[in-house]
Design a protein around this nucleic acid. Sequence first.
DNA 1: CGAAAATGTTACTGGTCGGTAACACCGTCG
DNA 2: CGACGGTGTTACCGACCAGTAACATTTTCG
Lengths: 200, 200
Amino acid sequence: MKTDFCKPSRRSPRDRIVEAARDLFRRRGIRGTGVDAIADAADSNKMTLYRHFSSKDDLIVECLRQAGMEMDGFWRELEDTYPGDGLGQLRAWIRRIAEHLDGDTCQCEMMSAAAQLTDEEHPGREVIRLFKDAQRDRVVELCRRAGIADAELLADTLLLLIEGARAAQQSSGAEGPSARFAEIADAAILSFAGSGTASR
Amino acid sequence: MKTDFCKPSRRSPRDRIVEAARDLFRRRGIRGTGVDAIADAADSNKMTLYRHFSSKDDLIVECLRQAGMEMDGFWRELEDTYPGDGLGQLRAWIRRIAEHLDGDTCQCEMMSAAAQLTDEEHPGREVIRLFKDAQRDRVVELCRRAGIADAELLADTLLLLIEGARAAQQSSGAEGPSARFAEIADAAILSFAGSGTASR
DNA sequence: CGAAAATGTTACTGGTCGGTAACACCGTCG
DNA sequence: CGACGGTGTTACCGACCAGTAACATTTTCG
């Protein structure tokens, strides 16, 4: 039995390290974050870190994997909330992103990581690629279920708008073009939904 | 009189340093590029670099400034080619960006720099902010001249699509959503142009 | 309890990086 | 010529950083 009644927030060192790493990577960047700082922020130490991860790159990959799994969880959550309702899920997705834009932390580590892992051979890039591909497939499927005629085109449009909103947030700040992201994305959906709805 | 007939490509060390820095920053990232590598690539040396720039950050700022000036030149070029034709300039702008997407180098250093300069106090962030604001104003003006009713909304839409295309290029590769950027952007312009044209 | 596994602590290595000092070189111009 | 400004070369400093070794401590569990 775990005696976690007095330290309920205390998870395993490994989990704390990954959590701390993700936080620091978001705030200070991947290259700008040293392993000592990660271990320190995780209230652990460098040795324990290197017992769980063979290298910093290994830790980076794990962080990206966890970020991807969290997104998967969100997708499932959406499916549960709007079962079979592609349009509802699309809209909820957009709403969620718009909310998270205002937050200080750019929720999607994938994009900023892609900008920082300049080495094309970095193992993390494969994780990013797989995630993006899966995300695109999912969005295309949602568009299709929403009865959009050219589902791929709307999906790509929305994906571009989303990545753009995140990027604009970083370069132009919250008052820049990203401020009207939700409005713009909804308009895109509307214009596609109006032009053609499939059979069922 | 300068005897530059035998070395016409040899510009001043300062120019070569900035050029080399911009190239390396694009390819290996800002944090991933050391000053030694820059001086070396510029066929110069670290001392000369530090005689022209007080620090690496100073050099970064100069690189961003030059990138901004090049874009200004492109805007003027557009105005000369399509004088007074907002729609033509918008379309040419999109075409140009789409072409540059395929290239190996992400032409706009501003965005990737924004992702890498995690320090909010970095002097380069001010340059980026100013550039983005000016760019937005310019695009809004073009939309207005194109007779778009809600010029700001189309401008923000296009800006999001463009930033998104660049970001998607980095994370998903050239075959991702960015492949259809031009198509999507043109469709956005069309949908706005159809819904309302101003007086003159 | 007692052994084993996991975790923590300290100190270290080898390398990189931003930045500087001292000095030598080389063209220009008076 | 000679002074001088811009440039190149070498060596160095201090800070940081990824990763490791050796040892002490705590936790887990039979």
